[in-house]
């Protein structure tokens, strides 16, 4: 199992010019995929006999200055191999499909990304804040966030 095998299998099943393997930067390579194709690609990766990515490790929300990204780390226990999928979203309307139907681990991980970055996951059964209080204003991990000096009467300077 290696990146070329996965890349070739993805390219033969889905269209070729939209799923590129990015190896230009240092560190780990990642697959940059189209946000409409996220759910079918993940389903294929999970159910195909030669790939079998049955473990969703991590969902990350990244603020890259001019756009958001939702990054997924998948892992296969059978072949002991992990990959990274990255989906780019625009800042004004960050909406992407939810993976809750495939992996139950996505439930809490996506709620955390919504809570801290404000990315909306379509199809999530229960999208509300998980770490911050329910009436918190704003999304802290965005680069333009300003922390409040007072909350519910407790002055915090």
């Amino acid at each position: 199992m290696n990146y070329e095998l996965i890349s070739s299998k993805l390219n033969e099943k889905f269209s070729t010019n939209q799923n590129q393997l990015n190896t230009s930067t240092a560190g780990d390579p990642y697959f940059l995929i189209n946000k409409e194709q996220l759910l079918p690609i993940c389903q294929y990766l999970k159910e195909n006999e030669e790939l079998w990515f049955n473990f969703l490790k991590l969902i990350t929300a990244v603020d890259q200055g001019d756009k958001f990204s939702s990054v997924y780390h998948l892992y296969s226990y059978k072949y002991e191999f992990g990959i990274t999928l990255k989906v780019d979203l625009e800042k004004t309307n960050p909406v992407v499909d939810s993976l809750c139907g495939l992996y139950k681990a996505a439930n809490w991980l996506e709620r955390e990304c919504y809570d801290l970055m404000g990315i909306i996951y379509k199809g999530h059964p229960d999208l509300r804040r998980i770490l911050l209080p329910l009436d918190w204003q704003g999304y802290p991990l965005r680069k333009d966030y300003v922390a409040p000096t007072e909350y519910n009467g407790i002055d915090n300077t």
Binding site: A26, G27, D28, K57, L58, T60, H73
Partner: peptide, 23 residues
């Protein structure tokens, strides 16, 4: 200063897999 890129390193903690994803 680290070069531009990203990395995910998992380790076996007493409670499970702790990983740091650094961009």
């Amino acid at each position: 200063k680290l070069p531009a890129g990203e990395v995910y390193v998992p380790c076996e903690n007493p409670r499970g897999e702790l990983g740091f994803y650094i961009i």
